[in-house]
Design a protein around this nucleic acid. Structure first.
Lengths: 152, 152
DNA sequence: TTACCTGCAAACAGTTTGCAGGCCG
DNA sequence: CGGCCTGCAAACTGTTTGCAGGTAA
């Protein structure tokens, strides 16, 4: 099966770009991290392995990853860009706990279908959508945890 | 029936704030504009009436409007905050045309219900959500219009 | 009179970009 | 070797904040 790293190499080759140690390191860190990391978090983790890498390279490489289809930039509404893995992962929506920040990827086929219907009723053909559900998870409810409400 | 402007006055009074010409002008511009304006757009329109108003005042007043429940800050993913009217308007989601930028407010009760269900299945209690549907409207499809894809 | 407000400009945070040197292919 | 890459720092964008003077109540 084709690995994500292969997709990246193909993209690099197809566009006359180059494979560099920095790019490989960043891709590796990103692919093995999993979650929804900010550029800052990625930068920190990259520096843990190679302190000489600059922030700009992380930004530039993440843009490359997005273009190549490996990553997707998401915004939760707090003004910072986050990246999630896209290659080989199905579309999903986000369920976010406002108390602890937990972020679950969810999917409901029925909702997906109704979204298409809704758009069609207005004469639209959908190309994509974003759905963020904000709430409090069971654990935080019993802990009584709070957190300043996000800007919305 | 209670007008939006009354809500603003009450909020002002309740919090020991003051009614100023700048604030009234900004509220007026915002309430009569309707759409989903950015701070920049609001600022331009305000300046058309009173060129002496500063950007900072627009930012500060919009924050006030949000706190008072008249406005709501929304993010479509392009890094700029937009404001929509909230008072007297029901919750809704957004259907956005990627070609012409048209933005329709939509609502589907069935989807709303399923969102609650979905969250509950994961042990969450929902407090709010955001749903943006991106596509191409009927008019733009027949015109064959395009526009660079938004960052997503 | 006394807070609160305002415009201005400086400060900020996140992100982008110009540049001189470095390295992949 | 030539062109892409890199780190650095400066530039940029959207937004916030400190300050000295102005004004609503």
């Amino acid at each position: 099966m084709k690995q994500a790293i292969d997709v990246f190499h193909e993209y690099i080759a197809r566009n006359g770009l180059k494979v560099t140690p920095q790019r490989m390191l960043i891709v590796e860190v990103f692919m093995s991290a999993g979650g929804h990391l900010t550029t800052e978090e990625l930068y920190e983790r990259v520096k843990a392995t190679d302190p000489s890498v600059g922030q700009a390279t992380v930004y530039r490489t993440m843009k490359l990853l997005c273009d190549s289809g490996l990553a997707k930039e998401v915004h939760f509404g707090d003004g910072v860009a986050r990246y999630e893995q896209k290659y080989g992962s199905k579309h999903h929506d986000h369920l976010i706990c406002e108390a602890c920040g937990e972020n679950i990827e969810v999917l409901d086929d029925e909702i997906e279908r109704l979204q298409e219907d809704l758009a069609r009723r207005h004469g639209y053909v959908l190309t994509s959508h974003r759905m963020y559900l904000f709430g409090v998870c069971g654990k935080c409810r019993s802990d009584g945890k709070r957190r300043p409400p996000r800007e919305d």
